[in-house]
Nucleic acid binder design. Structure first.
Lengths: 165, 165
DNA sequence: AGATGCAATGTTATGCTATTACATCCGATT
DNA sequence: AATCGGATGTAATAGCATAACATTGCATCT
């Protein structure tokens, strides 16, 4: 997945490795925690990892249907719920979509950067930022359950190629 | 609106003052910028400010219908688009809802704290936090268009009364 | 007045996102 | 075999948002 020190995935990165890595991590994590990575859950995770762009539930649904499974919405949403709950994917609220988590199982608070042009999303976990949010919350006696930080804009690759196309 | 130094609105705060203030600010801002705060836009803003809980578009729609207006979804969404665009309200992505902005017209990046129990949302604008996000983005050559920070949890009042109810 | 242009609103239909409620299946345990 | 619980199947519906096109109403120019 890496393409130098910029976390944005290069066009040329070995994406198969991303997928393999994600699935392997998921299997390890589920085995360790006694969770069942069923075929559907595994397949949904795999579809989410087809790229670095957040995928909608119905997009996944259609791909499964194209394969002959023809599941119904609850089936997909249940798989997504499982994956989100166990921190294998992040929900991207600003897009109503789901993207693979790069630190699976880790109870981190991610910051997600999403490109308006190409749709690619990358995740960062700035502990300092996270702590600042927690500190602000404490300052008003607010008990944090979840924090979501989503930043939209133009990714480096699209910025470079802005003159083209 | 203020209830001491904690930004969470007290049960006893003078909410009429919140609404009056918000509407007055909106009128001033629209006048200054040559924008038209039409009756529908004004009414939608007023409905959003009926409380400090984010309100859904269809919730607003139903209230308007109850008053005899019977608008259709696009009418409400157009008003909401206007209010969001001109920074009179914030969209709360994690709830698909809209809440009044306490710094109308100001191009700030807000952090919104939302109580899971009572639904109240309050807004903070921590410049340090905002700059940290921008700095992180710059670090990966990402051009920020918009940043949304939403924190869910339990507000101070609900935390106090957790033993009750 | 009449013509023109533009922003706002009305109207109809539809698309996309998500959940409720209930039935069935299947493997593990007793 | 009986039972139990988690996972999945199925049908219906709820909730959120927009596309496409018609109409209105006001400002401006002639």
């Amino acid at each position: 997945m890496s393409a130098g020190r910029n976390p944005f995935p290069s066009v040329r990165h070995d994406h198969r490795a991303c997928v393999d890595h994600a699935l392997h991590d998921a299997e390890t994590l589920c085995a360790a925690q006694g969770l069942r990575l069923t075929p559907i859950r595994r397949r949904v995770l795999e579809l989410i990892w087809q790229g670095h762009k957040p995928r909608g539930a119905y997009e996944i649904l259609e791909q499964l249907a194209a394969e002959g499974h023809k599941p119904s919405p609850p089936t997909v949403y249940r798989a997504l719920d499982f994956l989100v709950e166990h921190r294998l994917v992040h929900r991207v609220n600003s897009r109503n979509a789901f993207v693979g988590c790069v630190h699976p199982g880790d109870p981190h608070a991610a910051q997600i950067f999403i490109c308006d042009r190409c749709g690619v999303a990358v995740e960062q976990s700035d502990g300092t930022l996270q702590r600042r949010i927690l500190r602000n919350a404490q300052g008003m006696h607010f008990l944090v359950r979840e924090q979501t930080v989503e930043i939209t804009g133009i990714c480096p690759r699209c910025a470079e190629h802005q003159h083209e196309a």
